[in-house]
């Protein structure tokens, strides 16, 4: 018995040491959306820890106090049906906790689904991010450039990623900046985020999409507004324009490095929104309505 407990505690110490080295990506947010999410995670961990401690405390007390080996042979456990007060507590306590977490949850959902807090008055930078097996294509309609597997964004500016897919459902994820959102073939979804400071971040597709899924990653580089403008100019000076032929070649299944083009594929292969949506029987206004509703 002692050996088992020793082994168990060893394991938990190991786990703690291993994680103590550096902060986990999700809990080390670098933007307001990811920060909201990290806060929700900490709040729920704390709340749940309270429950776990209560359950463990009751369990250990009961096991220590009422084990058969500690009781006399003629001890006959009583027949107890229930007690309204006790049962009221065990119903009421979870309800209170769920009400609290429900409020936290609803508030934070509205927060992450809107322009990041404090950035409401700024014009967002719109970037179309589309996935194909097994790459990410980023189109900047405003700057008129397109990149593959690398996205550059300016700091302190709200970004709107418009997501869709040329193939299986994928999930766009930059853990340190914002949680995931699906990219699908017949509609466009929107992910809001903003980055607090310059740096390099990991981004990937998190939704299983076939053979090349594991390597379906991209680099996120956050630059100051000045550097970002310079980067855009550089692309315009050095890169080739993207053509339909070239783009179709990019779509073929496989992996590619980072690529940079001028122009965007949106001109000849528009995103599935408005009149181009998969739900192609009506006009754009009807499509807006469609997006508002959940899909089931």
């Amino acid at each position: 018995m002692k050996l088992k407990w020793a082994l168990l505690s060893l394991v938990f110490t190991m786990a703690l040491v291993l994680t103590g080295c550096e902060p986990l990506l999700v809990l080390n947010p670098q933007g307001p959306q990811a920060e909201t999410q990290a806060n929700v995670i900490w709040i729920s961990i704390a709340t749940m820890a309270i429950i776990l401690i209560i359950v463990l405390a009751i369990l250990i007390t009961v096991l220590v106090k009422y084990r058969a080996s500690k009781q006399s042979d003629d001890y006959e456990p009583p027949h107890i049906k229930g007690n309204p007060i006790v049962e009221g507590i065990i119903v009421g306590f979870p309800i209170l906790i769920i009400i609290f977490l429900g409020i936290v949850s609803v508030n934070s959902v509205y927060k992450v689904e809107a322009t990041p807090e404090g950035y409401e008055d700024q014009e967002p930078l719109v970037i179309y991010a589309s996935s194909s097996n097994w790459k990410w294509h980023f189109s900047y309609p405003e700057e008129d450039i397109e990149t593959v597997n690398a996205v550059f964004i300016p700091e302190d500016r709200p970004i709107e990623f418009k997501l869709y897919s040329y193939g299986p459902i994928t999930s766009f994820w930059i853990p340190q900046l914002a949680g995931q959102k699906y990219a699908m073939a017949d509609m466009v979804t929107t992910l809001h985020l903003a980055a607090d400071q310059p740096g390099d971040y990991m981004g990937r597709n998190a939704n299983f999409s076939g053979e090349g899924f594991a390597e379906n990653i991209f680099d996120v580089t956050v630059l100051t507004q000045k550097d970002f403008d310079k980067w855009v100019d550089d692309i315009h000076n050095t890169a080739e324009p993207i053509t339909e032929k070239e783009f179709n070649k990019l779509l073929e299944p496989g992996h590619l490095g980072k690529l940079f083009y001028t122009g965007t594929h949106l001109d000849f292969s528009p995103a599935p929104e408005g009149e181009h949506a998969g739900h192609n029987h009506g006009d754009a206004s009807e499509h807006e309505d469609h997006l508002e509703h959940s899909h089931h």
């Binding site: 998969g278 739900h279 192609n280 029987h281 009506g282 089931h296």
Partner: peptide, 12 residues
């Protein structure tokens, strides 16, 4: 009901 309006290029 979900597919009712999703007629693609076909008839309604």
């Amino acid at each position: 009901f979900v597919y009712e309006d999703r007629i693609g290029s076909g008839p309604s």
